[in-house]
Design a protein around this nucleic acid. Structure first.
Length: 422
RNA sequence: GGAGGACUCGCAUAGCGGCCGAGUGCACCGGUCUUGAAAACCGGCAGGUGAAAGCCUCGUGGGUUCAAAUCCCACGUCCUCCGCCA
């Protein structure tokens, strides 16, 4: 949620941001107009309420005829107050609903444009030349089968499309990735968290996932709860309605959880293998910090993501995601895309977003320092999303016979150097 | 799933329908005293909004009333007991 005061004072900045995202510019004017009505209704109500409070107090001490007269008066006033209050509530809700539709203000450095207009910030590592090595690389589905690591057929049989089993070394690899990720997160000042994945509507709405992203969220209607698509949701909502002590900032959590995504509207996209699935596990970094530190924190999250990819010995590039492709809470987003040999392309494996104070304002998370109480900034970043990392490791580290070399960083967690064919 | 009980300013508690946005203790912050600390004493101490007056918030939402922390209803959360179960 954008600060309404900021919007009142800088409507042009907000309009420009909406335009950059390809979202409604006139929403800004609707909000300004609603806000004016809201303030008028509020002041009307407050004036009447004050009158009523004064009158009510005088009733208590009055006697006899005088009291009867006051009561008659007060009764009439009470009706007016009730009407004014109803009007206030109505207009306030209208304003809030409009304000919730508004996306976060873009970072002025974010590239403007659609999905294709990203800017590549850097490319790290050299993709292997399989032609020179004299063999055709297998894709992760084939390798997964050879190693007994991934079973998509039985996944489909039991749970439908975009489902899979991780078996044998596939399951072991998940544990190794998680352990390595958590170990590095601890080094970087994160405290480990296993959050709930079933959350209430307030948590979902507060983190901004009930807006345009709603169609990708699983909802359990009977109990009015949602399955989270990322542990960003429970991690952000963890401190909902709290005031954090300034000396605790930055507050960093590394959440490990399953993530659930409906993948609505992606029919035919990445249907093979485990690149796009309904359920996967992920270690997510989440930071609460002072707004003035958010940009620097964002860089740190990105660095830790890069460190992870480097440790996995996988070639990757970093892109600065364009305005039209940002989530509504993000003011800037960097994606890391790993090289996938069989696709001859870089594919997203991690992503980090700076949500500034947008998400925290919805969730009412503040901090207190010497000059008062202010809204914190929140940031999130993927440390490792298991299936996509498995894809990248299998495809990039495969040998001609279908076996896969294990990156050095993971070897201590697996007790082997190589995944062999079964 | 069934039966009871509770929810007040960080914690613990007080609170008669108007004198309660709310007392007390502990914790915390500032000060006096002290070589320093403790103790003692003095002062401060929920949040939001507003330029201010004020307005709003006693789990949440509704209702009764001129007036609700206080009465009524619904929901939520927690606790105890019974049943079921990892």
């Amino acid at each position: 949620m954008i600060d309404i005061k900021f919007l009142r004072e800088n409507p042009d900045l907000v309009r420009a941001s909406q335009k950059g995202r390809g979202e409604s510019v006139e929403l800004v004017d609707l909000i300004i107009e609603a806000d004016e009505r809201k303030r008028a209704a509020l002041s009307q109500f407050e004036t009447l309420r004050q009158e009523q409070n004064v009158l009510s107090k005088s009733v208590g001490s009055a006697k006899g005829d005088e009291k009867a007269a006051l009561l008659a008066n007060a009764k009439e006033l009470a009706d007016k107050v009730k009407a004014a209050d109803a009007e206030r509530a109505k207009v306030e809700e209208e304003t809030r609903q409009l304000l919730l539709q508004l996306s976060n203000l873009l970072d002025s450095d974010a590239p403007i444009g659609g999905e294709a207009d990203f800017v590549t910030l850097e490319e790290i590592g050299q993709p292997r030349d399989f032609g020179k090595e004299g063999f055709e690389p297998r894709d992760h589905v084939e390798i997964g089968k050879l190693l007994g690591a991934i079973d998509t057929e039985r996944g489909a049989k039991v749970a439908g499309s975009r489902s899979y089993y991780l078996t044998g070394v596939g399951a072991l690899l998940e544990f190794a990735l998680v352990n390595y990720a958590v170990q590095s997160a601890l080094k970087n000042g994160f405290s480990p968290v296993i959050p709930p994945v079933l959350v209430n509507p307030a948590a979902m709405e507060g983190t901004g996932f009930l807006g345009q992203a709603a169609e990708n969220v699983y909802r359990i209607e009977k109990d009015d709860v949602y399955l989270v698509g990322t542990s960003e949701v429970p991690l952000a909502a963890m401190h909902m309605d709290e005031i954090l002590p300034v000396e605790k900032l930055p507050l960093r959590y590394a959440g490990y959880s399953s993530c659930f995504r409906r993948e609505a509207g992606t029919y035919g996209k990445d249907t093979r293998g485990i690149i796009r699935v309904h359920q996967f596990d992920k270690v997510e970094m989440f930071s609460f910090c002072k707004p003035e530190d958010a940009k620097a924190e964002h860089k740190k999250l990105l660095q830790w993501e890069k460190d992870f990819l480097t440790a996995m010995e996988i070639p990757f590039r970093v892109i600065d995601v364009a305005s039209g492709d940002l989530g509504s809470s993000a003011n800037r987003k960097f994606d890391i895309e790993a090289w996938i040999p069989t696709q001859g392309a870089y594919r997203e494996v991690t992503s980090t977003s700076n949500c500034t104070d947008f998400q925290a304002r919805r969730l009412n998370i503040r901090y207190k320092d010497a000059d008062g109480t202010k809204t914190v900034a929140t940031l999130n970043g993927t440390l490792v999303a298991i299936p996509r990392m498995i894809v990248a490791i299998f495809e990039n580290h495969q040998n001609a016979d279908g076996s896969v070399n294990i990156p050095k960083a993971l070897q201590p967690f697996l007790g082997m150097q190589k995944f062999e064919i079964v």
